[in-house]
Amino acid sequence: MSNMFPSPTPSQDETTRLPQVRAVGVNKIFGREPGAVTALKDIDLEIAAGEFVCLLGPSGCGKSTLLNAIAGFALPTSGTLEVCGKPITAPGPDRGMVFQEYALFPWMTVEQNVAFGLEIRGLSKVQIAEAVDRLLETLGLREFRRRYPKDLSGGMRQRVAIARVLALDPPIMLMDEPFGALDALTRRSLQDELLRLWQAVGKTIVFVTHSIEEAVYLGSRVVILTYRPGTIKRDIRIELPYPRDSNSAAFNEIKKELAQMVHAEHDRFALDERQGLTLD
């Protein structure tokens, strides 16, 4: 069991010391003057290996933009953005992405979806089968292995998406509101499962959410972004031990504190929305 997710990085100690994700003066501007929108402005952020960072903020605050920049889908307009000391130029399997819309390949069965990245990596059939078995077992997908995504519930689909990313054993997992479309109960059980996985395999997770509750429940650190332009408003370490009790006084204290900051940003968003200035 200890070797369930063997890490590909040989010098674990060295990578732990370096920040795994580093942003210095990152700007992202969409469109051109006039009418250009500054989505991210002067973002400085260092994420260490093994952290669970929640990017929190209202719609339009640029949290997904930042995540997509780290993923390499949309590079910053200016500034430095590095992963393990190397500038980000393109998407890569070292930064596994879990999308809100699952993005499973509907023409592949559950096991084919999970095996996809491993096949690209060129592993042998036996190695792939072993890895897929292990992941399906871990995420409770065993009896669904030959189903197509259309025959799965939202929660099951997101499990498959997580398994698909975990298969490549990326040091960093990027999650873009992954549980946003799920009902409350499924959401909580997937949150618990994600925490369990995170603690077991020690990955760095960057998790975008607009739910304050979710950010406080999951994050070892919560980064609150401002609404347009997206800047870092606050960067807070959440010291509560896991598993966290969302009914405890300490939990709600933190939640309340964050809520005030987020709501101030949301009010600015709502004002723009009334004036028809949002462009989601």
């Binding site: 993923a71 889908f73 393109a90 930064r95 596994g96 993005a103 996809f116």
Partner: peptide, 26 residues
């Protein structure tokens, strides 16, 4: 989103075409 997911999983041009674009267009 399929293209982005496949890119993220390391798919090159041929894999993208054969295993993502072609089946998605069937």
């Amino acid at each position: 989103i399929y293209v982005r997911a496949a890119t993220n999983l390391g798919a090159g041009r041929m894999t993208m075409f054969r295993r993502v674009i072609l089946p998605a267009a069937t």
